[in-house]
Amino acid sequence: MRTPATARAQVKDLNFWYGKFQALKNINMDIADRRVTAIIGASGCGKSTLLRCFNRIHDLYPGVRYEGAINLQPDGLNLVDKGVDPILVRLLVSMVFQKPNPFPKSIFENVAAGLHVRGIRNKTELEGRVEKALRQAALWDEVKDRLDKSAMELSGGQQQRLCIARALAPEPKLLLLDEPTSALDPIATAKIEELIDTLVHDVTVLIVTHNMAQAARISHYTAFMHLGDLIEFGETQQLFTNPRLGQTQDYITGRFG
């Protein structure tokens, strides 16, 4: 076990509604700095909903409401505060989606997209940071000769790593991964899991997965959710080998869900 980490973000009494439906109920958890935290649970349990609160992507749709706080440390910025601009939140917190969704542009333009948004125009700086992000995402060697080719020509697994590179390029404070391997084959999945393992040296990762084995393999901390409640949260090893609650036990042994 690595040394205990400081908290990168603290979720405090978080409630979330889609219209009248309460999708998250009183969530409290700490996201450890430069560690992988996994959120697991049956579909519809609110795990993706929780993840999507961190970069306010919910705000694209009408009728959503937050209560409580997600404090980004160390300065304690409440990401879900009404007065906080969701677009600026997304500049601090990057996200990778379930299905690989590169932009219909060149590979270079994809990785540079987040940098353009921040007004970075300097060509040398752009090239340097794109290369760094592609290296971090373990994609550089595969694409370095065809950076100006369309991203749509890449395979599914490469596209997803490209999306990770795109998310990493602006050096986010938090990297959100929403079931990043669910649309990929086992080999591509293994590559991405390896990649996540190396990423934690630089960045804090929060990952949603429906695959418990994956959570057990790659995460340091695991949160188990059920119907909008956070049932159990703790170190992954402890949660999978010796869960405190019967409900968690039932889920991880496959008795329901």
Partner: peptide
């Protein structure tokens, strides 16, 4: 999905 990923990299609405 295109809109979500564009917002995801921090674009504002007009971008």
């Amino acid at each position: 999905g295109l809109r979500e990923s564009a917002y995801g990299v921090g674009c504002n609405k007009w971008q």
